Simulated assay, not measured.
Amino acid sequence: MIRFLFLFIFVFHSYAQISDFDGIDFKKADRVALKYKNEKLNNLPELAHNLTLNLATDVERFRAIFTWVCSNIANDYGMFSKNMYKRQRFKNDSVKLKNWNTKFRKATLKKLVKNNKTICTGYAYLVKELADLANIKCEIVHGFAKTSTTNIKKIDAPNHSWNAVKLDGKWYLCDPTWASGIPNPTTFHFEFQFNDGFFLANPRLFAINHFPANKKWLLLDDANETSFEAFIESPIIYGKAYANLNTHIAPEKMHNVIRKNEIVTFKFKLKDTVDVKNVRFLIDNGSNSSNISPNSVTTKNNYLTLTHAFKYRGFYDVHFYIDKDLISTYTFKVKS
Rank of each mutant, 00 (worst) to 15 (best):
G143T: 03
F144A: 05
K146R: 09
T147W: 03
T147G: 15
S148H: 13
T150P: 04
I152S: 02
I152Q: 07
K153Q: 13
K154C: 01
P158E: 11
S161L: 02
S161F: 01
N163W: 10
L167N: 06
D168N: 15
D168H: 05
G169K: 09
K170G: 02
K170I: 01
W171M: 07
W171G: 07
W171E: 10
Y172R: 09
L173Q: 10
C174Q: 12
C174W: 02
D175Y: 05
D175Q: 09
D175S: 08
D175E: 06
W178S: 07
A179Q: 06
A179M: 06
I182N: 12
P183I: 04
P183E: 03
N184D: 15
N184L: 05
P185M: 08
T186Y: 11
T186F: 09
F188C: 00
F190M: 06
E191M: 13
F192P: 04
Q193M: 13
F194S: 01
D196Y: 13
G197H: 08
F198E: 05
F198T: 02
L200W: 05
A201V: 14
P203G: 10
P203W: 12
P203N: 10
P203C: 10
P203K: 11
L205P: 04
L205K: 05
L205F: 05
F206W: 10
A207F: 01
I208D: 01
N209C: 09
N209K: 09
H210N: 11
F211E: 02
A213Y: 04
K216I: 12
D222K: 12
A223C: 02
N224L: 12
T226R: 15
S227D: 05
E229K: 15
A230E: 15
A230Q: 14
F231M: 04
E233P: 00
Y238M: 03
Y238Q: 03
G239K: 09
A243R: 09
N244Q: 13
L245T: 01
T247Y: 15
H248C: 01
H248L: 15
